[in-house]
Amino acid sequence: MTQLIVHNIVTDNHSAQVFDTCALTYDARLMRRKVLTCDGGTAVLVDLEHTTSLNDGDLLALNDGRFIRIKAAAEPLYRVAGDLVRMAWHIGNRHMPCQFAGDHLLILRDPVIGHMLRDHLGADVAEIDAPFTPEGGAYGHGRTMPHAH
């Protein structure tokens, strides 16, 4: 059997033939070299030149010409409602990834942050499980990554 290897990420090919899907949490979508087992059981080696943040919907281009679609997996989050501008400022001040979802914010569960938002800032904080696709960094797409000046 030929080993399936990923050397490339495709972000804008909506007509690609998708062979399998792979649901990954936010943290698991940051990778350079890793073996993934996809939802349909396909095992692939991701071997990228640089550490890359994969987004929901990205395609992994396999060495045999097929594609695997990345999906954001459900994970433990807080749904934060209330004064969203104030809450977003405090979340950002702690450099936490945050997803803006209209009338609420989504953040990864952190008991200390949940306590601060709920008990000190008056936010409505609910524990949910949902896909997490936070806003990208100010200097590019995807998560904030170190950069050279």
Score class of each variant (00 low, 15 high):
Val85Gly: 11
Met87Cys: 12
Leu59His: 09
Asp83Tyr: 01
Asp58Ile: 00
Glu135Asn: 09
Ala23Thr: 11
Leu117Phe: 07
Asp64Gly: 06
Arg33Asp: 12
Ala23Pro: 14
Arg79Ala: 14
Asn13Arg: 13
Val18Ile: 15
Arg66Val: 02
Arg66Asn: 15
Met116Asp: 14
Tyr26Val: 01
Tyr139Gln: 15
Arg29Cys: 03
Met31Asn: 06
Phe67Ala: 11
Leu84Trp: 03
Glu127Pro: 09
Val6Asp: 10
Thr11Val: 10
Pro76Lys: 08
Cys38Ser: 12
Thr52Pro: 05
Ala16Glu: 11
Arg79Leu: 11
Val10Ser: 15
Val125Ser: 13
Glu75Tyr: 06
His90Thr: 09
Asp58Phe: 02
Leu106Phe: 07
Arg109Thr: 15
Ala23Arg: 12
Gly82Gln: 05
Val6Ser: 07
Asn8Leu: 06
Lys71Trp: 00
Ala23Val: 00
Leu108Thr: 12
Ser15Ile: 03
Tyr78Ile: 02
Met145Ser: 14
Pro131Ala: 03
Gly142Val: 02
Asp27Ala: 13
Ala126Tyr: 01
Thr133Ala: 12
Leu60Ser: 06
Leu48Tyr: 03
Cys38Thr: 10
Asn55Ile: 00
Ala73Asn: 05
Val46Arg: 02
Leu4Met: 04
Val35Arg: 15
Gly82Trp: 00
Ala61Gly: 06
Gly140Thr: 05
Ala73Tyr: 04
Tyr26Ala: 03
Ile91Ser: 09
His95Trp: 02
Arg69Phe: 00
Ala73Gly: 06
Met145Arg: 14
Ala73Met: 00
Gly140Gln: 05
Ala123Gly: 11
Ala148Glu: 14
Ala123Asn: 09
Lys34Pro: 05
Met87Ala: 15
His14Ser: 14
Val85Trp: 02
Leu60Glu: 10
Ala73Ile: 01
Ala88Cys: 02
Leu62Phe: 02
Thr144Val: 06
Leu121Ile: 09
Leu60Gln: 08
Val6Met: 06
Glu49Ser: 14
Asp110Ser: 06
Ala148Gln: 13
Asp64Lys: 03
Thr133Pro: 03
